[in-house]
Design a protein around this nucleic acid. Sequence first.
DNA 1: AGCTGCATGAGAATCATTATCATTATGTGG
DNA 2: CCACATAATGATAATGATTCTCATGCAGCT
Lengths: 144, 144
Amino acid sequence: MGTGTPATETTMTSTRPTTRNTWQRAAVRDLLENSAEFRTAQQIHDLLKEHGAKIGLATVYRALQAMSEAGEVDVLRTVDGEATYRHCSSGHHHHLVCRSCGYSVEIAARPVEEWANEVAAANGFTDVGHEVEMFGLCAECSKR
Amino acid sequence: MGTGTPATETTMTSTRPTTRNTWQRAAVRDLLENSAEFRTAQQIHDLLKEHGAKIGLATVYRALQAMSEAGEVDVLRTVDGEATYRHCSSGHHHHLVCRSCGYSVEIAARPVEEWANEVAAANGFTDVGHEVEMFGLCAECSKR
DNA sequence: AGCTGCATGAGAATCATTATCATTATGTGG
DNA sequence: CCACATAATGATAATGATTCTCATGCAGCT
Ligand SMILES: [Zn+2]
Ligand SMILES: [Zn+2]
Ligand SMILES: [Zn+2]
Ligand SMILES: [Zn+2]
């Protein structure tokens, strides 16, 4: 996987990622950083509006896209294909998600990582990645 | 949630799922059983038409939906949320999929199953299931 | 303050999937 | 073999999420 490098060089002044700081993106980021649940773009949009933010839906989508490309958020698909986003710690990890309330826990899976690589190699595959997600009922939701 | 139970009882004769055998469904089933790749509904539709079958796209979707509910095929989502289908052996298993040609291999993961259960229990989760899929380049596609 | 260009927002446009609904044909029973 | 009840089909409209368009706005810099 290559790293996207914007090549907008004019002279030799600034080589910044040319990404601007708008309150809209900050709002999306803040909301995600204060939630332990996976949410859809539309849910996020609704929540922001409830908080009085006058932000467009397209902007939310763009912010989420940018953040996911930057590795700031993880994306999961619901059974019917909807994308859900959650702020996540950097680095490789997986999730244990409550299928009732959306609460999720990040989990490391050292043994699985190795197993995955072995299986891949044994089948002649290269450049292999994997997706491991677990769904269940959290302790809270189990008490019902 | 909940299990859909067709309640079309007339007298007390047959409680069959009242599912009819049409050549269209047979065609979809046949095509899938002769392929080791995950395909989208539209790809399947195209392939069928190329084979001279005069079948509607909606019918393909319905056939796939029925088959997946019956556990005859597995469904995977591409990164952009498209559903792909493949005929699969019955029983729990996972996949190693080529992200270039779609070729895939079924894999058992005994160790992973146990690991998953442990992690789930350790976090107080119940009724836990998991999704484990691996994506890479198959031996063939790697030679390029 | 003045510029430049990415970002925003409202709505149109896509695209996959589902719903309609009139028509066809499967499975059954006579 | 024929008639019937009805699930299945197919052409098309509808839905819903995500992306694109483009005129206007604003962040970053001089
Ligand atoms: Zn919960
Ligand atoms: Zn991993
Ligand atoms: Zn391949
Ligand atoms: Zn498993």
